[in-house]
Design a protein around this nucleic acid. Structure first.
Length: 846
DNA sequence: TACATACAC
DNA sequence: GATGGTGTATGTA
């Protein structure tokens, strides 16, 4: 994949795009086989798409100022921005190669040693629209396919044809509830994107297309941000290659070179061999099997990963302060090491990687740059077993950043990507080019976040996560959808127990309990309760009773809705596929070094720090925690007995049987002891698949005793506790305090309320109408009437509306009962039709 | 505080 | 036939 000039952004906006790219083009979640849908369509399924006027030609009402001076060679060191976006320029091979190439950072170790001929430059993912060769039915939209394709859909290295893979995934998925849910989400996102684009168009129309003033505002923001640039640090991100898979290969060399996946129902990792077939993490097991019939599945073994991880971290620690981001990834400051050892960053990284490989047998890739954000991205560049170095100059940083597809920016996920693409932003460099437009929608787009990415800024301090910064502990379990209340309770008990176990292990208690449930239609719902300002708890009993109350309340709520006719009467039970509990508003019990007896339930947990500090407090605690218990168990001791035995049972010798075994347990009657016990056992048996608690905190958090570990240095450990890093906020990300949706914007206040995006259908419609004559072009005239491929009904309206309609067929109830109203321009109307359906679906009949 | 989303791994 | 678990951040009400 040779680095190629941006094909996407530039082309789409160049003004000489393939003919039919109207200012606003339409596509749809359900792709119809229409001749007009040519390869010129962008991936977004948004009904409307903003297409900026060409930079040079003042086609429309506005002549846009040329954004940037023609970029001539490297920008001077102290050059202030804005500067031209490299993307718009030549094939910037040269610019990119500059990182690591010519500077002092490079040194001999600089060889980007990659076993894979990886491009030195970000390659813009091909924007080939999904084109189905044969299928006659409705074709899924690009965005939906991407959604289904999962996170690694983009990466594809030496994979088999991407379209083919997508097609297989689509075929395997299309009839599942999961698929329907994704489709629904995609349709909702489409509406959201359309509304945003409409708003942008309206704002542009108001200004006659002139955004000079906005550009000036952004330039000010850029100048401010530029002042924060720090180039004196050397940060490396080390990321293990196919970590779980590699760990297993190390244990069992016969796996080397074979296609296997780690995990079952959903893959957590696929070996490189398996990836060639299109298998990737987060993919459903049965789908992966379709892609690679001989795929072998290996069970997760967290103790293995954890120990491998510790070995790696111990080595990294020899090079500088580290900040583990997960079991297989860590940030490390090489600043001091390089100075001390008189080596270049590239050499240091080489050494580090070589040492890891030699001592652990695991290969890792690395990214080196002046900050965490760039290093993070760079670490992926030459995977596996490679590294990428970015020089500590503004030019190198910006050059590197500018060429990245927007999706590669840490923090930009599927949703943000779609939103940005709809507005014309495909690469980071586009952020600058379209800064004026982006300013108009700065809030919904997180402008300052994007500008930081554009400038190649990121965190420059590395600090180890601190116990006190942990925000929550949670346990959740997925199961085959069911609606048996007794079993919900049973599951809840087990979850409560597991959570209590984690709390005890890590020594936290908390004040807020949150119940999470996911319906069979993949709707996630959470209900929380904070017991009191001074009530901290961590015992299974409280977790259970409070969780049960929340669950009961939710079920009662449903009954009411049925009574009010808001939910179809025919519905039977609340049908769920997941239940979880989360404890938040934590208190670090370890810090208070207390031990005490839990007054509560069965007294089984002799060491609950949650219990409290002293006798006196213990009493308080007792009083505080008593009420909820009484309420929950007032019906009698039977419950308590029942719960106690189940919660504190001693069956601990479960092996992971895997998901498929769940079918073996099908209690037929509520309350049947044996069956419940069986279920209970099963639930336990499936738990081995996941770490008992959060991977990061449990395995690499600073509460882990690393002494005695290879390469561990006691002194430095102590230092870690004593030395307060300047930036004490440990963030998993690189841009503390900001995200795409962040409101905090340098130099720009939040948009006035009236300008905020509203999803109220009426509002959406208004905007559409307002803008219609200026930038908005209604759906391209369709060639022939749109027709539902299922019921044959004809539509005069948008594809979005049709899409929603088609989706309703997958709902196993009478198709169009909620019939989608499709008028002539009604993406807006379809909002109404889509939403109620999901609500209703939350409660299914089965 | 409560809830929903988005994101990472 | 069928798509995970743990955690953080943040917007909005």
């Amino acid at each position: 994949m040779a680095p190629s000039p941006s094909t996407s952004a530039a082309d789409l906006l160049a003004g000489s795009p393939p003919p039919p790219v109207p200012r606003l083009a339409s596509t749809s979640p359900v792709r119809l086989s229409r001749a007009s849908q040519s390869a010129s369509l962008p991936p977004s399924t948004s009904k409307f798409r903003y297409s900026a006027p060409p930079e040079d030609a003042s086609t429309t009402s506005v002549q846009r100022p040329k954004p940037s001076p023609p970029r001539s060679g490297p920008v001077k060191t102290s050059t202030l921005l804005p500067r031209p976006s490299p993307r718009a320029q030549e094939p910037q091979q040269a610019g990119v190669s500059s990182y690591g190439q010519s500077s002092a950072w490079k040194g001999k170790g600089k060889e980007v040693d990659s076993s894979v001929a990886a491009p030195a430059v970000a390659t813009v993912p091909q924007k080939r629209p999904f084109t189905s060769t044969k299928s006659t039915g409705p074709q899924p939209a690009e965005s939906l396919l991407r959604r289904l394709g999962g996170p690694s859909d983009q990466k594809a290295g030496l994979m088999r044809d991407k379209e083919e893979v997508r097609q297989i995934i689509y075929e395997a998925s299309k009839n599942s509830k999961y698929f329907i849910a994704q489709q629904e989400k995609d349709a909702q996102l489409t509406l959201r994107v359309d509304a945003l684009v409409a708003r942008l168009n309206r704002l542009l129309a108001e200004r006659g297309g002139n955004v000079k003033a906005e550009q000036a505002r952004v330039d000010e923001m850029i100048a401010e941000l530029e002042k924060t640039r720090v180039l004196t640090e050397t940060i490396v991100v080390v990321d293990a290659d196919a970590f779980y898979a590699s760990c297993h290969q190390r244990e069992d060399p016969s796996l080397v070179g074979t296609a296997f996946a780690v995990g079952g129902g959903v893959l957590t990792t696929a070996s490189y061999e398996a990836r060639k077939y299109g298998c990737s993490s987060a993919m459903a097991g049965f789908v992966a099997k379709k892609l690679c019939p001989h795929l072998k599945f290996i069970s997760l073994d967290f103790s293995l990963y954890s120990s491998c991880s510790k070995s790696i971290m111990a080595i990294l620690r020899q090079y500088g302060d580290i900040s583990p981001a997960s079991l297989d990834e860590a940030y490390c400051s090489l600043t001091d090491y390089c100075r001390r050892e008189k080596v270049t960053p590239a050499e240091a990284a080489e050494r580090m990687r070589a040492q890891v490989l030699a001592e652990t047998g695991l290969s890792v890739s690395a990214g080196v740059s002046p900050n965490a954000m760039l290093s993070k991205v760079a670490a992926d560049k030459n995977k596996p077993n490679g590294q990428c170095v970015i020089d500590p100059t503004p030019e190198a940083c910006m050059e590197f950043a500018g060429g990245l597809p927007i999706r590669n920016v840490p923090g930009i996920g599927r949703v943000s990507e779609r939103i940005l693409q709809a507005v014309g932003v495909h690469t980071v460099a586009d952020v600058y080019r379209l800064r004026g437009e982006l300013f108009l929608i700065r809030n919904e787009v997180g402008l300052s976040f994007l500008l930081r990415a554009y400038l190649g800024l990121g965190r420059t301090t590395i600090s180890h996560a601190d116990r006190s910064q942990r925000k929550g502990i949670s346990v959740e379990r997925t199961f085959h959808s069911e609606s048996n209340i007794a079993r919900f309770y049973k599951r809840l008990e087990n979850i409560a127990e597991a959570l209590a176990g984690d709390c005890e292990k890590s020594q936290y208690s908390g004040r807020t309990i949150t119940l999470k449930i996911k319906t069979h239609t993949y709707q996630s719902i959470s209900r929380a309760k904070t017991l009191g300002s001074a009530i901290y708890f961590s015992d299974a009993r409280t977790f259970y009773t409070e969780g049960k109350k929340l669950l009961d309340k939710e079920m009662a709520n449903r009954r009411q809705m049925i009574a009010r006719g808001q939910i179809p009467k025919g519905g039977k039970d609340f049908c769920l596929r997941l239940i979880g509990l989360r404890l938040s508003n934590l208190r670090d019990d370890k810090a208070t070094k207390d031990t005490g007896k839990l007054d509560g339930w069965a007294g089984t947990r002799s060491k609950s720090k949650a219990a409290t500090n002293s006798q006196g407090k213990s009493k308080v605690k007792k009083e505080e925690s008593a009420p909820p218990d009484e309420l929950a168990f007032e019906s009698g001791d039977l419950d308590e007995e029942h719960n106690r035995s189940d919660l504190f049972g001693d069956e601990d010798d479960h092996h992971s049987l895997g998901f498929d075994d769940e079918d073996d347990v099908k209690p037929t009657l509520d309350g049947d002891g044996d069956e419940l016990q069986q279920l209970n056992n099963f639930i336990r048996s499936s738990q081995g698949e996941h770490p008992s608690s959060d991977q990061l905190w449990a395995a690499v958090g600073d509460d882990v005793d690393l002494s005695g570990m290879e390469g561990f240095d006691e002194d430095s450990a102590d230092e870690e506790d004593d030395i307060k890093p300047i930036d004490t906020t440990h963030k998993p990300f690189w841009t503390a305090g900001e995200s795409l949706n962040s409101k905090k914007q340098t130099g720009a206040g939040p948009a006035p309320m009236k300008d905020r995006l509203s999803f109220e259908s009426k509002r959406v419609k208004e905007e559409m109408d307002e803008d219609a004559d200026f930038f908005i072009v209604e759906d391209e005239p369709v060639v022939g009437p749109l027709k539902c491929p299922v019921c044959e009904k004809s539509f005069a309206g948008s594809e979005v509306a049709l899409s929603a309609h088609v989706a309703s067929h997958f709902d196993d109830e009478e198709p169009v009962k909620k019939k989608v109203k499709v008028g002539s321009s009604s993406s807006a109307k379809s909002v109404k039709s889509v939403k109620p359906r999901s609500l209703k679906d939350m409660f299914a009949r089965r």
